[in-house]
Design a protein around this nucleic acid. Sequence first.
RNA 1: GGCGGCAUAGCCAAGUGGCUAAGGCAACGGUCUGCAAAACCGUUAUUCACCGGUUCGAAUCCGGUUGCCGCCUCCA
Length: 493
Amino acid sequence: MALRVYNTLTRQKEAFQPIESGKIGIYACGITVYDLCHIGHARSAIAFDVINKYLQYLGFDVTFIKNFTDVDDKIIERAHAEGCDIKGITEKYIEAHNRDMDALGVARPTIAPRATENIEGMIRLITTLFEKGLAYDAGGDVYYAVEKFKGYGKLSGRNLEDMLAGARVDINEKKRNPMDFALWKASKEGEPWWDSPWGKGRPGWHIECSVMSQRYLGETFDIHGGGEDLIFPHHENEIAQSEGATGKPLARYWLHNGFVRVNSEKMSKSLGNFSTIQDMLMDYHPEVLRLFVLQSHYRSPVDFSEESLRDARMGMGRFYATLKSLKDSLARHEGTIDEWKGLLTEEHRQVFEKIMTLPERFTEAMDDDFNTARAIGHLYDAVRILNSYMAEGQNEPAPETVYVLVRSRETLLRIGAVLGLFLDDPDHYFDTDRNREVRKRGLNIEEIEGFIEARRLARAQKDWKKADEIRQALVEKKVSLKDISDRTVWKIE
RNA sequence: GGCGGCAUAGCCAAGUGGCUAAGGCAACGGUCUGCAAAACCGUUAUUCACCGGUUCGAAUCCGGUUGCCGCCUCCA
């Protein structure tokens, strides 16, 4: 089966066909840098990160562009509020954004262009739109004449009459049509400005993406992505600008991710119901956040709550428990024992072959519009098979077992990497997880270990009653114990 | 008002015409254990919001009803 993707433009899944064989250009709309990123931004970033990584996994040479909008009303407002220039704001939040994305394991884009570095290109594009009769000057403000562009509304499935019937179009005397949007805004006192044929001003929001995508990916490129709230007006306007100027399709496939919700409502700045990525990373391992997001399809909404994150954490713990078992089983067996390939007895071969079909099943799921939820289901299946297999041949694994486990682990890690999962060392994962949980619940490690030592002494004397009381006290603090032959390990539930 | 999406077990979530409706979390029973925990095995939706229709056959297609959500204003 070949890759199929849901295209917002046609509202159906289509066979994916790159413009140039073996190469893919993706443009994903980035953020306006005036504040910290929240979980909603993380969801979008992770969705396109996985798309990016999966396409590379398939062997495509991917050019991934994600911009920064670094001039905009909100930024100017914020700069005034903090008494600095816009660069003071944008530099700070670009840095914060990059830190957040790095922490989440989101790969940096091939190029991360900024709007303010592309003003000349925007002026050129607006000039072209004037030549085509699609732009008009209204006293220093330049607007796009939407009526002049056939097909305005084709992405969002609207037409101008419907939109005009809507209650919330702002009245602006300067506009010829209420739906016309700004390409260039005359600067007011104290605002940043650039010289242009229409006077001092700054670009409108939409023009930058048309310019930067064309600069780095050409007039027509493969995939354009973003959150579903960008479909209208942002992406609709990009189409009007770019296609109005070139007469060619802007992008072949339009992909939009669904929202993160809180209590069934969109997580957003205006509702104030957001959690920043920084805050969430204090409480959860980054891969728990990724798993939370990837367990749903990227176009569906996901509901964010303490409980859903807790579920994701438990699921992630299951994966790492298996990775830890694999690590421990193989600790004394470096390298692969390749001579066992082809010599496996029936029992070993069955496990081996099941795990070796994992990439196939993974690809089948991901080829269906990046169905990460189904892919993750297959990973859990593999984990169950391996746990069962390891439970049988515990202590000293036979050489053929080692061969199967080495190959299985490679496969698991290779596929996990596409989703940005299993990248941590299992011991490190559980250490940091425990430290996080201990801090969240206000517990004290020395105290817990003191209790465990007291219980060890009680157990040595076969004082089961006392040992159980101690354990019960710990269980009430959500600390669970596991007795292994010579020691006791603990974790937080 | 216009446009669009969603409704699957206690919770989360795959599945878009036909083998036994994935998987995770939770719960319960068993193996293991001094007892537990983890892991493993087993159980938990004759049924997919509701009503009607198409079909040999539908969670899946069509029509209607109800409920929830998004966009139409900055927003991932």
